[in-house]
C-alpha cells in the first residue's frame, strides 16, 4: 500500500529525515517508536503533505502512485488520514458542519452525490458511537473546549467518518487517561480490515497493549534503526532506547 524509499526531508537547512525505508501492506498495523526529536511526527507530516517540510530526495508511493506532487487534500481523497498529536481548534466551525463538508468532498471525488441530511445524521450517530461520543460534541466548534481525551476521540471519529485506507495516528495516546485510551484503541481496532492499514506513532508501550502492531520500527535521528515484532515494545519499556542506539 505504502512504499517509502530512502526518504530525506528538511526544514530550512536542517535535515530531519535522513533516509527512511518503510513498506506497509494492507491489513497491517505498524508502530513507530523512538525518543523525542527522532523525526516521528515529521514523518507523519511529510506523508500527509505539510509544506513546512521539503522532501529533498527519495520517494513515497501510495497504492502505486507518487505522493510527492499531491496536495494534503488530494492525499486525503486517495485514502490517507493523519490523526494529529495536537488536534487544532477551529472556533466558529461546528464539528458537524466540518465533518459533513469533509465527507462530501471525499464523496465528490468518488463521483458520489452529497449525503442527504438524514443519511448524514445516521452515519454520524453510528460513527460517534464507536468512540462513545454523544451528540453534544457535534454542535460545538471543532475541538473547541474539548478536553485532551475528547480531542483525540474526535480525531478517531473523523477517521471513522472518512474510512481511510491508511491511517497515521500521531501520538494519539498522549494525554489520555486509561479510559480514553481504551475507547480510542477500541475504536481503531473496530475499523481494522484486511484492506486498510494503520500506523501508530507512540512513545509508550501501553497503547500497543490495546492496538497490537504487526511491526515495530524504532526511529532515531531520522532513520529507522530497528524493526521487529510486537515484543520489541516490552523490551523498550524495560530497557529504553539506549541499547538499540548503541548497537548500531
Amino acid at each position: 500500500m505504502l512504499i517509502i524509499k530512502d526518504l530525506h526531508a528538511s526544514v530550512g537547512d536542517k535535515e530531519i529525515l535522513k533516509g527512511i525505508n518503510l513498506e506497509i501492506n494492507a491489513g497491517e498495523v505498524h508502530a513507530i517508536m523512538g525518543p523525542n526529536g527522532s523525526g516521528k511526527s515529521t514523518l507523519a507530516s511529510v506523508l500527509a503533505g505539510r509544506d513546512t517540510f521539503t522532501v529533498t530526495s527519495g520517494s513515497m508511493q501510495f497504492k502505486g502512485e507518487d505522493l510527492l506532487p499531491l496536495s494534503p487534500e488530494e492525499r486525503a481523497w486517495k485514502g490517507i488520514f493523519l490523526g494529529f498529536q495536537y488536534p487544532i481548534e477551529i472556533p466558529g466551525v461546528s464539528n458537524v458542519n466540518f465533518i459533513k463538508a469533509a465527507v462530501n468532498e471525499h464523496r465528490k471525488r468518488k463521483g458520489l452525490p452529497a449525503l442527504s441530511a438524514a443519511e448524514f445524521l445516521k452515519l454520524m450517530r453510528e460513527k460517534m458511537a464507536i468512540v462513545e461520543m454523544d451528540s453534544s460534541f457535534s454542535g460545538r466548534g471543532v475541538n473547541v473546549g474539548f478536553s485532551g481525551g475528547e480531542k483525540k476521540r474526535n480525531e478517531i471519529f473523523h477517521m471513522a467518518m472518512l474510512e481511510p485506507d491508511l491511517a497515521i495516528l500521531d501520538e494519539t495516546d498522549s494525554g489520555l487517561d486509561v479510559d480514553a485510551l481504551r475507547i480510542v484503541a477500541t475504536g481503531v481496532n473496530q475499523m481494522r480490515t484486511a484492506n486498510n492499514a494503520t500506523v501508530v506513532i507512540t512513545h509508550y508501550q501501553r497503547l500497543l497493549d490495546y492496538i497490537v502492531p504487526d511491526f515495530i520500527h524504532v526511529l532515531y535521528q531520522g532513520r529507522i534503526i530497528k524493526t521487529a515484532g510486537k515484543e520489541l515494545a516490552l523490551e523498550i519499556e524495560k530497557k529504553g532506547y539506549d541499547w538499540i542506539i548503541n548497537a548500531q
Partner: peptide
C-alpha cells in the same frame, strides 16, 4: 488550521 482541514479532505 488550514493544514488540519486539508488533511480531512477539505480543499
Amino acid at each position: 488550521e488550514i493544514f488540519y482541514m486539508r488533511t480531512r479532505g477539505i480543499p
